[in-house]
Design a protein around this nucleic acid. Structure first.
Lengths: 215, 215
DNA sequence: CTTGCCCTAGAACATAAGTTCAAAGGTGAA
DNA sequence: TTCACCTTTGAACTTATGTTCTAGGGCAAG
């Protein structure tokens, strides 16, 4: 997407500075920070141009709030801090691993990651699991990959799901297919056999919405 | 990693609030924001506990700066804003695509993404490309995935690289193998043939360091 | 009990930082 | 020129916000 509106050189410079300042300092600049950095003679000029930038949708200002500048991206969403996604543990993609408590991964996260905004969506309460094993290799998920999970019980046939086997007290990462009163948990690895079990024995803990891999 | 030091319930709550506030509002809270949110009776109590939290390495404070709180992660690094990584265009993982200018992807990014900090490393000047085609399918990279590229000429045999074919004026994503004066560009797809070309015709534009996929 | 230490109170203070105003300068259209 | 309209100035004003101070409460060790 191109620039949504032509800006004066001064406004370009201000935006550029604000972005840099936030990346460097972790908080928005003050009006006077902008003034000095951009060589502007008066705070009122900064205020004036901030007003214009706000009018044109590049940022939002909170009245009477120190450093109350919020940058907006092209879609008008806030470009501020990212949610920290907890990595709640390991998920067996090979043999099922004993899952922690009966209530999912309610304990301490083993680490946390920040996510690209287009993956995050703070409303969804995502969490992450690190994959052990290669049962999902044909779905392009490798051992060590991080899978992002949206906790929901509303999964459809074929969705990649975190499945909790009640009897076995184990969790596993598989594609799910409901077949009558039975459930088929299908690994994406041609060398592995699906797991069949009674529908009442399976609790879907979530659906995989993204994959991250560091080489 | 466990908690690096035991905190009072009040301090736990303060940290929790600060994190939430920053994620929600895009800037750090004021002392009084913390006071009201955590039901603390006096700003001086907040100040006192902030001092302790700083002493114990959970945050840093900038003196005399409004909202000058900076959260630190377990490694003591700033947990502030993330670098915006530009997505410079598409990379052919099937047939080579005509690459843009002769100087790599120097034009406008088609979009930008924010990255998990452990992937980012602001020093490395990373950029991203969106994958077209399925030539790297066996390397678990699918059509539509986002590959993170570290711009470097220092690539080793077998590295997944962004290769620029000078004669053809095309760029492609392949594993690279130098074989004498010749170079083999190997797709990770058993149904595709490698590309052989003279070493002088290949310029390595970078090395893939991470993969992101949204389902 | 007394002492020391950690924590809490409440207020006051100092200043960082957003906002406003009246006047003037620039510029292009009519 | 004259008239709009946008932009700049410099200063003053208001208040949001960090900081400091003094006093006191709670509690465990001695």
């Amino acid at each position: 997407m191109k620039t949504k509106k032509k800006l004066s050189p001064k406004q370009e410079r201000m935006l550029e500075f604000i972005r840099g300042f936030m990346a460097e300092n972790g908080l928005p600049p003050t009006v006077r920070d902008i003034q000095y950095a951009c060589g502007i003679s008066s705070t009122s000029v900064v205020d004036y141009n901030l007003r214009l930038l706000q009018r044109d949708g590049f940022l939002r200002r909170r009245p009477d709030v120190a450093r109350g500048i919020e940058l907006l991206d092209k879609e008008g969403r806030s470009a501020g801090f990212l949610p920290q996604i907890p990595v709640m543990g390991y998920i067996a993609a090979g043999e099922p691993l004993p899952g922690p408590s009966n209530d999912g991964w309610t304990q301490e996260p083993i680490e946390t990651v920040e996510l690209p905004r287009h993956m995050a969506d703070s409303k969804k309460n995502l969490y992450a699991l690190r994959v052990k094993g290669t049962s999902m290799i044909d779905a392009l998920i490798d051992d060590g990959d991080l899978v992002l999970v949206e906790p929901t019980h509303d999964v459809r046939n074929g969705d990649m799901t975190v499945a909790w086997l009640k009897l076995e007290q184990e969790a596993t990462l598989k594609r799910i297919y409901r077949e009558g009163s039975r459930v088929r948990l299908q690994p994406a690895n041609s060398q592995m056999e699906p797991i069949y079990t009674d529908a009442s024995n399976v609790e879907t803990r979530g659906r995989v919405v993204a994959v991250l891999r560091t080489l």
